[in-house]
């Protein structure tokens, strides 16, 4: 069992693990020849199934195992995120699976190059004596052009999962969505949903006091480019409506039943209902979700991808977060499965 890769995009990898970590502490990481899968299945809240192409985060990637070159690991995300954070300024970083005292671990080797004036031996002295260039110069040349490498190794203990352990885990199945829509920038959405949650909590304090601390956001969308987010408390009800969003066209080749399947698709029916200004009561597919859980989901916004939300009315919300990559093909996608509370 061998896994070794150099991390090409430390920043993306760190943001990814950090936003996954907000949903659950442990990730099932499946490494195979052509892709890396991160799966979070928390006790409560939203599941994430992320499928990344190798070159989204890695390069010079090798994985070998007896089970068809697939390695399944249970990775503590907090430790991994922390390790990756120390690599943010690195010139290069490598990750490999190794063993120490019979404990499997992911070893992260981080190489950092210090700039000429900031090495530890003369940090402030040389900065202060900048005028005396003649004195400093010999030292700089003596230390190899004024730069030196620091190598840090971070070890994250992991658990290797057997193929039979993960055999029972399947990506959730869901019926065809009623509405699919491209969401506005998640950070904008998050700032408003966070405020809504805060409002609901403030309202609960002044209200009966028996109101559960949970905050139920209602999220709805129609096939005319509108997204609506609302929350109700004793003291108030508030809703924000986004208009002029995009409802992407479905590809008949991807829909079961082809052209006929597309004609009978729930979203085709939903197109008949509702209006583009979002004032009509018809044509909305809505879900009720927990405000705080939603805030955690929205933290993926820092990756800055395109997000398509699929609404199954009263049932579930599925978010597809497409990570941007340079060559534009083979997009990596994170799939969030959010379940709707009933009423």
């Amino acid at each position: 069992m061998r896994f070794k890769a150099s991390i090409q995009n430390i920043n993306t990898f760190t943001k990814l693990t950090a936003s996954l970590n907000s949903l659950g502490p442990l990730a099932w990481v499946k490494l195979s020849d052509d892709q890396v899968c991160f799966t979070i299945i928390p006790e409560q809240g939203t599941q994430v199934w992320a499928v990344l192409s190798i070159d989204t985060i890695f390069e010079t990637y090798t994985v070998q195992s007896a089970a068809g070159n697939v390695i399944n690991l249970e990775v503590p995300l907090t430790s991994l995120t922390r390790a990756l954070k120390s690599a943010l300024n690195a010139t290069s970083a490598q990750i490999r699976l190794t063993k120490k005292d019979n404990i499997p671990l992911l070893a992260l080797t981080i190489v950092t190059t210090s700039a000429s004036n900031s090495y530890a031996a003369f940090p402030t002295a040389s900065a202060n004596n900048n005028n005396e260039d003649g004195v400093d110069a010999p030292f700089d040349s003596a230390f190899g052009g004024g730069s030196r490498e620091t190598i840090v190794t971070q070890e994250v203990p992991v658990r290797v999962l057997g193929p039979d352990t993960v055999a029972g885990l399947h990506e959730p199945q869901c019926r065809e969505p009623d509405v699919h829509i491209i969401l506005p920038p998640l950070l904008q959405l998050k700032s408003i949903s966070d405020r809504f949650t805060k409002l609901a909590l403030a309202g609960a304090k002044s209200g009966s006091g028996t109101t559960a601390a949970r905050t139920r956001l209602e999220l709805a969308a129609n096939m005319h480019g509108c997204l609506r987010m609302s929350i109700k408390t004793d003291a108030m009800s508030i809703s924000s409506v986004w208009t002029d969003l995009n409802n992407p066209e479905l590809d008949p080749n991807q829909v079961a039943g082809g052209e006929i399947g597309l004609a009978e698709h729930p979203s085709t029916r939903m197109k008949q209902l509702g209006t583009a200004d979002g004032r009509s009561d018809e044509g909305w597919a809505s879900v009720r979700i927990d405000g705080r859980d939603w805030g955690k989901v929205m933290s993926v916004g820092r990756l800055g991808g395109r997000v398509i939300a699929c609404f199954c009315h009263d049932h579930a919300l599925i978010l597809y977060v497409y990570l941007p990559n340079e060559n534009g093909e083979d997009e990596s996608v994170l799939t969030y499965y959010v379940s709707s509370y009933s009423a």
């Binding site: 506005p184 003291a235 809703s239 924000s240 409506v241 002029d244 979002g278």
Partner: peptide, 9 residues
């Protein structure tokens, strides 16, 4: 393109 409506009881 965002419109927020708040009804205060």
């Amino acid at each position: 393109t965002i419109r927020t409506t708040c009804n205060l009881s």
